[in-house]
Write a protein that binds this DNA or RNA. Structure first.
Length: 269
DNA sequence: CTGAGATCCTGTCTGC
DNA sequence: TGCAGACAGGATCTCA
């Protein structure tokens, strides 16, 4: 599921929990990507949610003196449910219980993770994260500097969370298509004008995907149960052998850094 | 420091 | 139908 737009969509879907009291956390399975800290239940019980936000692909729930960090991994999702509705789905691992409702963390593949920490900005998984692509500081000069001397393929570079956060496999393919850059181009061969196009493409596609409520490819749905409709607008992702919308040539599927990558070899170079 | 590759886990789809 | 193998939107860790 989740790249930046899907996480942002989830954050917005649970934003109504701001200022509500988290009564308790019930953990059914601690074995996520990392084992959930054993004091998480104690530290988060009966704490007011002061703020709900996003950093990179992390959902942050700020409590009075700690911060809950939730990463959805590849298959994680949050689901809002009435507290009295006592049903479970397969792979429901954690429940965040409020007065009338609860938020349930469900994750088939358990690549997601949940942490609690005092100073979220100093958490090892947070402190080395790269720039937010929707921030003003992410501009052509910034990207050009990142590309400078890098031996990485450009697609791997824009997916590197230590450089730029939030761009995953789908939006990497899509933004490279929009900016007519081959995913195989070496980052150090990217010109300033390409950076300009790519930055604009990344911002445009992330904003648009957020507006559409994320991408529903397999089974992404937001915490309120609504689906994302961005899938209707994909240009290359998952469209192997279909005609390029720009030039009509067949879209190719290749592997870059062990990830499926879709592009048009005719109009992306 | 950089970059390549293996790896965690479960479910679904494809091809024989 | 059964079953093996490939593949899935992430990101860390190990090693060269």
């Amino acid at each position: 599921m989740p790249e930046l737009p899907e996480v942002e969509t989830t954050v917005r879907a649970i934003s109504s929990f701001k200022n509500k009291k988290l009564e308790k956390v019930i953990i059914h399975n601690r074995n996520l990507r990392w084992k959930i800290e054993k004091d998480l239940e104690d530290l988060s019980a009966n704490k007011k949610i002061l703020n709900i936000s996003r950093r990179a692909k992390y959902i942050l729930m700020q409590l009075s003196d700690h911060c809950l960090m939730i990463h959805l991994g590849m298959s994680g999702k949050l689901r809002i449910q009435k507290r009295k509705d006592n049903f479970f789905k397969k792979h429901d691992h954690v429940e965040f219980i409020f007065k009338n409702e609860k938020i349930i963390f469900n994750d088939v593949r358990r690549f997601g993770s949940i942490h609690i920490t005092k100073d979220v900005n100093k958490h090892p998984l947070i402190e080395n994260l790269g720039i937010e692509p929707l921030s003003k500081n992410f501009n052509k000069n910034y990207l050009y500097k990142l590309c400078n001397h890098s031996d990485l393929d450009i697609k791997k570079l824009i997916m590197d969370q230590k450089k730029i956060v939030g761009v995953g496999n789908i939006y990497a393919s899509e933004s490279l298509f929009i900016s007519s850059i081959s995913p195989l181009r070496k980052a150090k061969k990217i010109k300033l004008e390409d950076c300009d196009k790519l930055v604009k493409a990344i911002k445009k596609i992330l904003r648009y995907a957020i507006k559409m409520g994320g991408t529903t490819l397999r089974d992404f749905y937001s915490a309120d149960g609504s689906e994302g409709y961005f899938k209707l607008k994909l240009n290359v992702y998952g469209l192997e052998n279909e005609a390029c919308k720009r030039c009509g040539q067949k879209i190719k599927k290749i592997v870059v850094g062990q990830r499926s990558t879709f592009y048009c070899s005719s109009c992306q170079s």
